[in-house]
Design a protein around this nucleic acid. Sequence first.
DNA 1: TTGACAGTTGAACAACTATTCAACTATAAT
DNA 2: ATTATAGTTGAATAGTTGTTCAACTGTCAA
Lengths: 116, 116
Amino acid sequence: MTKNEAICDCEVIHQDIVEKVKKNMPDESELYDFFKVLGDSTRAKILWALDESEMCVCDLAVLLNMTKSAISHQLRLLKQANLVKYRKEGKVVYYSLSDDHIKSIFETGLEHIREK
Amino acid sequence: MTKNEAICDCEVIHQDIVEKVKKNMPDESELYDFFKVLGDSTRAKILWALDESEMCVCDLAVLLNMTKSAISHQLRLLKQANLVKYRKEGKVVYYSLSDDHIKSIFETGLEHIREK
DNA sequence: TTGACAGTTGAACAACTATTCAACTATAAT
DNA sequence: ATTATAGTTGAATAGTTGTTCAACTGTCAA
């Protein structure tokens, strides 16, 4: 058992396990960013809706009973995370999902909460 | 096109689509709570680690370079969300995943971020 | 060219939340 | 009994973030 040098306020109990897990831990901060984006219920609902159908900003605002501005702000984050894409048609901007991983993640999530 | 009664500041452009999507939207707030729990990187890392191996609070604190207190607070939230379970052995409390949905969600997430 | 509407954007605010700190319980060992 | 360590807990703090508000751009129609 060796004293830990840094912030941690305890001794290392299972050094071997910690080492093993540390090796296999992916340092991909993108992964955590990805789940952070899913972590807001407004964004989750938008993704859920877009999984059903392509929609414009107004449609989403009506559906979720929110302002266009609020929706637009969240769509920007979803765009940055490469979760949605868009196409313009005159004044109207149509958003849709950029890939289908989101659907399977939602489905696994539903399985989880229904198994109780 | 009918004016929307509530918060939304725009007219309904595609009434049919909004109606259709609204019908199919699950009102399961548990689902959004579930993703909210995953949305914090500390909790995501804890879950990732526990997917590798059962671990005690100290191990997790050393692994993530955080205090036992911080880890313990997050473990409480994961417990409430039924994502982890624990067993006591003397002074030591060992945590592990309560089901294996988390693993498949992480794997789908990794697929997503690697496809670019 | 003027008005109306879809959508975006930046700043400000309010609400939320992760971490810290200190005090505490419980178990084990000397 | 006393000391040491694992872990928990509640309150406080500090950082983060979702929404609002107002101003703006771009497109379409009269």
